[in-house]
Every structure is written in C-alpha cells, then in structure tokens.
C-alpha cells in the first residue's frame, strides 16, 4: 500500500518474482522427469511486466552472449512470444538450454535494477518460456543463412562451445562439420547435466536446430585417434575450432579410493 492507500503493483513496486511451478519434492525423487515445469503464459506475461525497460540495459552487460534482454521481455509482455524467441535467437542459438542451466543469479539477473531493492526479473525463466513456446508451435523458423563462402571449418566437440561456433559459422555461409567423439551429440549437455535438470529431448531439439542451419555432425570421431587435426587441415578444412571440454575427472588420492566401489 502506498500513501494514498492504493495497492502498488507492477513496475518497480517491489512485487516479488513469479514462482515457477515445480514437481512436488516427494514425487520427483521417484522419477527422472524435469523438476522445474516452466511458466504458463499468464505467469510469463506477469513476470515480463515487472521489467523496468531500463534505458541503459545493465542486464545485457551481464550476459556472455549479449542477448537484448529488455526487448525480448517486452515482446513477452505484449504476448508476442514468437517475436521474443526470434529476438533471443539473434544472439543465442540454444535458448531453451540457457533458460534452464545458466547461473542467471550471477550474470544477467545480478545486474537487474530491480534486484537492488527486491528480486530481479526472472530472466532465465522468461528465456525458457519463449524458447519452449516456439518449440511447442512445431514450426521453428530457420534464420537466413548467408550465401556460401566456399570455406570449410572443422569443429571438434559438439558441446555448447562447438554447437554455438558451428551454428554461427553456418549462418555466415561457411560449410561446417562437427566431429564428436561419443555416440550422441551435445557434450556436457547430453552426458553431464542429468535428465531432471535438462531433458535430453530439449538438447536433441536444439541440436536439430543447429543441423537445420546446415551443420553436419559426425559421431564416434575421436580426433587424435581416428583422425588427427593435421589430417583434417590437410583434407580441405580451412580452419578448425577445438571445443572438447575438460572431461577428465579428478580424484582425491586417498587410501581406498581405488577399490571397485568409489566412482566419479
């Protein structure tokens, strides 16, 4: 209530962020389904209306891929959910993934003006909502791909670094091949983050999108064993990007660690 006795609502009123529906804790330990269920349309529009649309856009500086956050949020507020998804994809090839696993509290949301006095806008939840809404429509548009440059690039590893690099290069008109060591694409997205936090179906959907840009993905290709980097460069690739992650587990080096039961 403000001085005039009216209830303050909406922008800058200190209203808390809208909670995201979740599976009940007792039920969810009995299944591998996603824990967070995502905003419904009305939750998303209400949360988007909390955004102050700051002219300086401090949140954008907190985003490693510089998404135009206030603009995509304004589209959600207007009910233009597909427009919001398109705005996200200008900078981010994998919004359904980032909306789920980014540490927003130390990135975009940490810079949000609302966060100085209350709770920041739930930017990650809104990103997830827009990406999921677009996917649920079925017909995900492929952005314009520039005319072929005639250049070929080899990308080693199909995790987040490799997929992003490959997707952007393909949109710029280059012919890109990803070489993945394991038998499914996605790297840490597939083999690291568990199903209940990032469903495999979402990863597959985003990988399909990268393929739709013209990227070829070859599986079971352990570069360094099956083929060397030099062989790739000699066989007509003009450049290479190495995005193989850091997947070698560390151990404590304590007695008993090498008995059959401890794992990593």
């Amino acid at each position: 209530m403000d001085k005039e006795g009216k209830e303050k609502r909406g922008r800058g009123s200190g209203e808390p962020r809208h909670p995201m529906p979740e599976q009940d804790p007792r039920a969810r330990t009995g299944n591998f389904d996603e824990v967070a269920l995502g905003y419904r349309e009305e939750d998303a529009v209400a949360e988007a209306s909390r955004c102050l649309q700051c002219r300086k856009k401090p949140c954008v500086a907190g985003c490693p891929v510089e998404i135009d956050i206030p603009t995509f949020i304004a589209s959600i507020e207007k009910g233009d959910f597909l427009g919001a998804a398109a705005k996200l994809k200008e900078k981010n090839n994998l919004p359904a993934i980032c909306g789920r696993v980014c540490p927003q509290e130390t990135q975009c949301e940490a810079e949000c003006t609302l966060g100085k006095k209350g709770e920041p806008v739930a930017i990650g939840r809104l990103e997830r909502f827009a990406a999921d809404f677009e996917a649920a429509q079925g017909n995900v548009p492929v952005p314009p791909v520039l005319p072929p440059t005639g250049k070929r690039v080899a990308v080693i590893g199909s995790g987040p670094a490799g997929l992003t690099c490959a997707g952007d290069l393909a949109r710029m008109g280059h012919q890109v091949t990803i070489f993945e060591a394991l038998n499914a694409p996605g790297g840490v997205l597939t083999y690291g983050i568990p199903e209940f936090r990032l469903p495999k179906s979402i990863v597959e959907r985003e990988v399909e999108y990268i393929r739709s840009l013209g990227v070829e993905i070859l599986l079971d290709q352990v570069i360094g064993c099956t083929t060397t980097l030099q062989e790739l460069l000699d066989s007509g690739y003009h450049a290479a990007f190495i995005g193989i992650g850091a997947g070698l587990p560390m151990f404590m080096d304590i007695p008993g660690e090498n008995s059959p039961a401890p794992t990593s």
Binding site: C63, P64, V65, N92, N93, L94, I97, C98, V101, C102, Q107, G159, P160, A161, G162, L163, T164, C165, A166, D168, L169, M172, V188, L189, F241, G243, G245
Partner: peptide
C-alpha cells in the same frame, strides 16, 4: 555452458 557458448561465438 553460457561461457562456452560465448567463446564459441567469439571464435566464429
């Protein structure tokens, strides 16, 4: 994940 994506973008 997002830092890796940022690096992939810069390299592209």
């Amino acid at each position: 994940v997002i830092e890796a994506m940022g690096a992939g973008k810069r390299s592209a």
